[in-house]
Write a protein that binds this DNA or RNA. Structure first.
Lengths: 125, 125
DNA sequence: AAATTATGAAACCAAAAGGTATTATTTAAA
DNA sequence: TTTAAATAATACCTTTTGGTTTCATAATTT
């Protein structure tokens, strides 16, 4: 353990920019809400009908989704319409894309292995 | 609130397949560990030097990363070498890709708006 | 064989998360 | 103008999370 920050370390901005989004995404109910809202905008009441938890609990989830900028809310009379903000997912996607290089590579390796397998079988014919 | 499961709801498998990965990704320290391991395989000792928390705490994070299948561990004498498993990120990426459609659309709209802006400026010349 | 190194695991703690029930507020309808 | 509907907010509770310290174990070195 060291006390001073090591300048070789991963930059904080890389980690904390996406924190709100990743935090919001960590709960399955919240991911379910996002999928619901991908079909149409909904009031809290609408959303609540799809889960076996109270409206208050759903409201808390919606707050966290809003903090993570994954949804937005607009008022219409006494209703609040929740709307998916797909661009909010971008920070999480961007962070994950950093690793694309690696699993593309691994997928290639897998593909290569399959091809080699096939060639071996051919040679055996 | 309803008590029975609504068959129109988002399927559970879609949500729970990626739970281990999303859970692991929700903590900034764990995301930092993943970035570290993307450079080279490391022992716990190596990893710990990059964070101001105890080895025990790092170990817990590594356990959670392993549960989410984002890393693997192999023994070499008394050392345990932690290795990034990029394919483990795939379940999270896949889930997020479901929304690609939406933000591609939105990016297009944004692009369109920018182009229109540019055209307007041209007309003003 | 003894000391050191690398790690694992358990017990404990404070704070955060996810839920509830209850109360208050705003808007629409009768 | 009551009454009902849609939502917000607060207090409260239990479980999970992220951290610590301490102790145990297995492999290396001297």
């Amino acid at each position: 353990m060291i006390t001073e920050t090591n300048s070789n370390d991963v930059s904080n901005s890389q980690l904390y920019e996406s924190q709100g989004a990743f935090r919001a995404l960590s709960d399955p109910t919240r991911r379910g809400i996002l999928m619901l809202l991908s079909e149409r905008d909904m009031t809290i009441g609408d959303v609540s009908e799809h889960f076996d938890i109270t409206r208050a609990a759903v409201k808390k989830h919606l707050n966290i989704l809003q903090e993570g900028a994954l949804i937005s809310v607009r008022s219409s009379g006494r209703e609040r319409i929740n709307k998916l903000e797909p661009l909010g997912l971008k920070s999480a996607v961007d962070w994950l894309n950093y690793f694309n290089h690696f699993w593309d590579q691994k997928l290639s390796a897998l593909q290569q292995a399959v091809e080699n397998e096939q060639n071996n079988h051919k040679e055996e014919e």
